[in-house]
């Protein structure tokens, strides 16, 4: 299967201007590629830059050099140095991201928070709401909470709302940063099922899973992220 995401010679350092322009290299010459139906698990010691890599793939962090290419609207699109509107369009249509933290929008109910990405891709609001309710139910969020803003939810509930929001739009590429971090076993298993379903439906997934049970359950391949300076 041809890849939908390919990374080569990627370098990312953080330069701290407040500390005498101290440069912290994090990613050095990273290369990887992911095909539809694959789930690539990033592994490596803490501080090796797994999260930085994932955020760079999403266009959240800006690498100094190298290439991140993604199949978007039937074309290869370069994300390193891309214009904001290009990145936004890729995020809207092709690539989803599940982070550990939900950025809460005040006053908007959980069901609408979840439905939003699907509506933005052009789906009718009613259909998006039905699917949002279905996903929230699947992830064990009680129906009485659906209309409430997630700001007041527990950490685990917020995370499940976040997962539902990222899965609703059926992005061809999905990035997962510790999707099960604050979930109990029952909910964790629900999330695993959902991720596997997406993978089997042909989504290309890159993720960080500290929980080896989750990793073993969903990953098809491991990608080692080395500490900068260490020999691979």
């Amino acid at each position: 299967m041809l890849p939908v995401l390919r990374v080569s010679a990627l370098n990312k350092a953080f330069v701290m201007h407040a500390q005498g322009d101290l440069a912290l290299p994090v990613l050095q010459d990273v290369a990887l590629s992911v095909a539809p139906g694959e789930c690539l698990a990033l592994v490596g010691p803490s501080g090796a830059g797994k999260s930085t890599l994932l955020r760079s793939l999403y266009g959240n962090y800006r690498p100094q050099s190298g290439s991140i290419q993604i199949r978007h609207r039937d074309q290869w699109v370069e994300l390193v140095g891309a214009e904001p509107r290009v990145v936004l369009d890729v995020r809207r249509h092709t690539m989803g991201f599940v982070s550990q933290f939900l950025r809460v929008i005040p006053r908007i109910g959980a069901v609408d928070v979840v439905a939003e990405p699907m509506v933005r891709r052009g789906a009718p609001a009613e259909e998006a709401r039905r699917r949002a309710e279905f996903l929230l139910g699947l992830l064990g969020i009680p129906a009485r909470l659906w209309a409430l803003p997630p700001a007041t939810f527990s950490g685990g509930e917020q995370q499940r709302v976040n997962i539902a929001r990222s899965l609703i739009a059926d992005y061809p590429v999905l990035l997962l940063d510790e999707p099960t971090a604050s979930l109990d076993t029952a909910n964790r298993d629900g999330v695993i099922d959902l991720i596997r379903q997406r993978r089997e439906a042909g989504t290309a997934i890159v993720g960080i899973f500290h929980d080896t049970t989750v990793r073993d359950a969903v990953a098809t391949r491991l990608h080692n992220v080395a500490l900068p300076g260490a020999q691979p």
Binding site: F14, V15, H17, A18, G59
Partner: peptide, 21 residues
């Protein structure tokens, strides 16, 4: 300049880093 989350999460310029911090 850049995407809002880029500028706020990965500020490059000394002044932006100071603002974000």
């Amino acid at each position: 300049d850049g995407l809002t989350d880029q500028v706020l999460d990965d500020p490059q310029h000394a002044y932006t880093q100071m603002l974000v911090a």
